[in-house]
Amino acid sequence: MNNVGLAFYILSLCFYFSAAVIFLIDLTASEKQLLPIARILLIIGFITLTLLMIGRSVVYRYIPLYTFHETLLFFAWVATIVLLVLERAYHFRAIYYFATPLLFGFLFFAFFFTPASVDLWPELRSIWLFAHILTVIVAYGTFAVAFVVSGMYLLVDNHLKKKNFSSLISKLPSLDILDYYNYKLVSVGFFLLTISIFLGAMWAQHVWGALWRWEHKEIWSGITWIIYAAYLHTRLMSGWQGRKVAMLNTLGFATVLFNYVIVRFFLTGGLHQFY
């Protein structure tokens, strides 16, 4: 499996990379025929990634969501689905240009972590835990795309404010649309994050008899939750739109990354030692 798995991993890396490069060429040059090519490459990469994950679950006999390597792959997989849905269902093409390079980044990041499997203790085989991890990664994937949308918002806003009429912004959607997608994506991500925290607490209660143990991971998840709650609050209550909310969203994703990577490796311990 290892060699075959590695081959699939490298293949999907190549597809995501070439898709990202072609998307960027399409963004800067006005060759209209390039986007479909890049999209096909992305879809092939996505299929390869899917096969890789299916392969892992068949060989290791668990859904591959337990090692850091696995979660990174799944993370990129989820975000790709979000992209494809946004483009196919809502014609939000411009998202490809900025999100695909980020997804490649996450996939490539997985290269530095062992693709080996883990032996699952009996407690880890709980359905609560599985659902906890699944929902949190889906939430993270959604937040990642929302972050990209915020970045695009800031870019367009900046161009409009500075009166910079490069052909770049003619390829991007209007501020109104970007704001709308941002809001929708964060709403979905927030909903999933809330469920995930709840599921995690249930699992902890079930296994260790405590809902909340003030571990680093838990604290930072709480902070992330509060930031996104603040985003949704300002968006709903005060009708805010614009730079400030886009920045708040960026901050939210920064805490996601911090929690996902930094806390995982430098502030580990307790029940979250694997993640």
């Binding site: 409009l160 501020l175 109104d176």
Partner: peptide
């Protein structure tokens, strides 16, 4: 066009 870029 600018109006459209802002408001869709």
């Amino acid at each position: 066009e600018l109006a459209k870029k802002i408001f869709g």
